[in-house]
Amino acid sequence: MEETEEEKKDEADYKRLHSFPLIRHSDMPEEMRIETMELCVTACEKHATNNESAAKMIKETMDKKFGSSWHVVIGEGFGFEITHEVKNLLYMFFGGSLAVCVWKCS
C-alpha cells in the first residue's frame, strides 16, 4: 500500500513538475518559435484527450499564420525522419508525456 501511495505521489509530482513545454529541437526564429510553442500548448490543453484534433488545430492555425503546408505529429511514442524547410521546424515535449513535432514542407 505504502509503495502504491508513494507511486501515486510521485506521479502527481511528476505531472506537476513536468507540465511545462520543453523545446527539444527547433531552428525557428525566436519570435516564431515562441508563438508556435504557445500554440502547441494551447492545442494540447484544449484537446487533452484527442491528439488528432490537437494536431489538426495546430496544423490549420500554422497554415493560416505562416502559409501552407505544415505537418504536425503528436504522440506519446513514435519515430520519424522528415524533410523540412529550414527555419521551420519545432520539436518539443509537453505535459510530461507528449511529443509534438511541427514542420513545414511544401
Partner: peptide
C-alpha cells in the same frame, strides 16, 4: 530543406 529524425 533539411532532414530531421528522432525517436521518442
Amino acid at each position: 530543406f533539411e532532414t530531421f529524425s528522432e525517436n521518442v
